[in-house]
């Protein structure tokens, strides 16, 4: 773990995007409640990118299950998960990062998919082709995409 930290700090100091220092999916440090304190990339998330990832079917597709009032342009938000209005009042950044990376660490048995996980699946497929795929699979979202979505979620405050 410390090696990653040093790499990330070095990346920040150098002002770079620190791509090389991305925490790999199997190395993400979840605490006992499912929170992830450390940024997965060391770089700040981009809110606009986060909105895109959140809303598009081919990326996070979070809208399939969640509703956010500040995104009225998103047609047909789903109802499978709770509304995310004010979600940043309920959770801090580390907790939100943990939920997006692997929600099952926060909520046992939740239907919410794990977005930063590469193995341990039953009959893993190659995206939506229905064909078999070998693990490790690419995670559904990249480290930076997780950070972008978290940055967007952090803007969802009501208080």
């Amino acid at each position: 773990m410390t090696k990653f930290k040093i790499a990330i700090v070095a990346g920040i100091l150098a002002g770079g995007a620190a791509v090389a220092a991305d925490v790999e999916p199997m190395n993400v440090a979840f605490d006992d409640y499912g929170a992830v304190a450390m940024s997965l990339t060391g770089a700040a998330g981009n809110v606009d990118e986060g909105i895109k990832i959140y809303s598009s079917r081919s990326l996070g597709n979070c809208v399939a299950c969640h509703q956010v009032s500040s995104l009225p342009d998103v047609a047909f938000p789903g109802e499978v998960g709770p509304t995310l209005d004010g979600v940043a009042d309920r959770w801090n950044e580390a907790e939100l990062r943990g939920i997006v990376a692997d929600a099952k660490k926060t909520y046992d048995g939740t239907v919410m998919p794990s977005f930063y996980k590469t193995s341990g699946y039953i009959r893993p497929g190659n995206a939506y082709t229905g064909k078999a795929a070998e693990e490790p699979l690419p995670p559904i979202l990249s480290a930076q995409q997780i950070e972008d979505v978290v940055a967007f979620l952090m803007t969802l405050k009501e208080e």
Binding site: C65, E79, I122, R123, I140
Partner: peptide, 25 residues
């Protein structure tokens, strides 16, 4: 009841736990 695939969803996750809800449209 088996949670298949990278989304780890079973038939029951959608059709027993969530019938009546919208999943997107």
């Amino acid at each position: 009841y088996t949670r298949f695939g990278q989304l780890e969803l079973s038939c029951a996750n959608c059709h027993e736990q969530n019938y009546g809800n919208y999943i997107r449209a």
